[in-house]
Every structure is written in C-alpha cells, then in structure tokens.
Design a protein around this nucleic acid. Structure first.
Lengths: 126, 126
DNA sequence: GTAAACTATGAAGTATACTTTATAGCAAGA
DNA sequence: TCTTGCTATAAAGTATACTTCATAGTTTAC
C-alpha cells in the first residue's frame, strides 16, 4: 500500500512516516520501491507503527525504539537484558501514571481552589 | 529552603527548577525572596515538584500542568471537566503502556531475531 | 492532454523542554 | 580578606520529534 493509505490507517501524517524511515525505525523490510520510486508498504507496517506509537506515547524515544529493533543483531542474553530493562522502565512509568492519576482524583474530591497539590498556598518556610 | 536543597531533594537540576518558575509552573506561592534576592522555597514545593515530575514523565506537557494549576480560577464544573479529561488521558496512556509491555514480554518469549513485532520481515505487499 | 492530486528529496523551520554561558552579586570558611 | 561556592538574570545553545518548504517527477480524472 502507498504512503497515504498507511498514514490514514495508522493516523499519522505522511511526513512523520517518512521521518521515521529517515530515523531508521521504519526499515527496508517494510518497504518496496516501485518503478516510479514510490514506497510500497507491506501490511505489517500497520501493526508495527501501532507499537511504535504506543512506545512513543509512553515516553520512549526514537533511539529507544531503534535499540529494540536492533535486538536482531545481538546475543540472546543481551536481548533479554535490554528487554527487561525496557520493561522496568515501563513499570516505572506505570507507577508515575498511577501517582498522577491519584493526584488528579484527589483534586476531584477536595476543594481545588485552595488546599491541594496543585496550587496549594502555604507560606511555611523551612 | 534554598534552591540547591530543593534541587537535591527532588532530584532535579537547579536550572530546571528556575526554568519551571519561568514557565509558570512554580508560582510565587512556593517562593519568598530574601533580602539578597535568593529564592526561599516553602517545604510544600517538594511534594508539588514530585507531582510535576510524575506528570511530565507520563507525557503531560508544561502547558497541561499550567492548565491544572489554573484550575484555581474557574468554576467547579469546569474544574471537574478538565480533571476528568486529564484522567482519561492518563488511562489512555496506561493502556499504551500495557500494550508496549506486552509487546516486550512477547519479545522475551519468542525468537527475537526473526518473527515478531519489531523487525518482522515479510515482503507481502497489498 | 492537461490540471489536480499524489509522490519524492533535501533542507530549513518549529515546538517543547531543558542546559549552558556570560556576567555579576552574596556568603561562609581558612 | 580572600577564595571558593552559591545565588541571580538574560540570552543563547541543545536535543528530540516533527513539520514545512522548495522543487520536481508521476498518476488520475475529466
């Protein structure tokens, strides 16, 4: 499928898809070039880009994703190590999310305008 | 307490703390200025900055945080609406995290080097 | 067959979140 | 006192993730 279809289906701008390729997180494996030089993507790009979107949405960088892609070239032990590291990062992010969420729930239940985490006013100085 | 103590306790660079103030997410409520013009922070800054860190870590922007701070000026209904919106965003992020985590667990269990989400090779073209 | 729409590339521009630099005043210990 | 270290500000610089622009070839609809 052509780039515009990919863009529409994964809900990313065309420019972003080309950018991801330039950055190395969309590899040749997903792309054939036609006679006219147009990119022709395999359908697997759709699931792949969804994973990429998830990863970026939760704070991983493009370089993080590149390191995950490049797992292909290294030893199983090293692969496992990197993956476990990433999982630990995700779990840390999950804790942060839960904290942030509880903070917001706290805001809902208290009087936001004076006494709570965001905007609390207290001149006590230590 | 002075800026260096805050920096150390919340584990943020001094420059970042000054930057947050400049961006408006650390307000005067947390700061007194001494005769020498040094900032003197109230102890509440510590919890507050932890919340800020959590929010930033999970994808909220400084402007998002500003909008949460500014809840003080608006109606309860509007406050509740904004907070619920933010909670919804967090829950979306939580789903993304869980997806990303499952993807990584999948990587751990499969043969990473050939058949999986990152780096799958399939020339099928639609 | 021609205009509108889609594709391509490289380079420059933008937004966000910081960090660093340059310069200078204030403070605490030897 | 003097040196080392902490504080201050403004402005410039950096990293990341894109987006836009300029230019040009290709395809499709009429």
């Amino acid at each position: 499928m052509k780039i515009s279809e990919v863009a529409q289906r994964v809900e990313l701008p065309i420019s972003t898809i080309r950018y991801y390729e330039k950055m190395g997180i969309i590899t040749d494996e997903y792309i054939l070039r036609e006679q006219n030089n147009y990119r022709n993507y395999s359908s697997e790009i759709l699931d792949y880009l969804q994973v990429v979107k998830n990863c970026l949405a939760v704070g991983f960088t493009i370089n993080d994703i590149k390191s995950m892609i490049s797992l292909k070239g290294i030893s199983k032990e090293e692969q496992a190590r990197i993956i476990k590291e990433k999982i630990a990062e995700i779990e840390a992010a999950q804790k942060n999310l839960e904290n942030a969420k509880q903070t917001l729930y706290g805001l809902l239940q208290t009087d936001i305008t004076c006494e709570n985490g965001f905007g609390k006013y207290d001149r006590t100085v230590s």
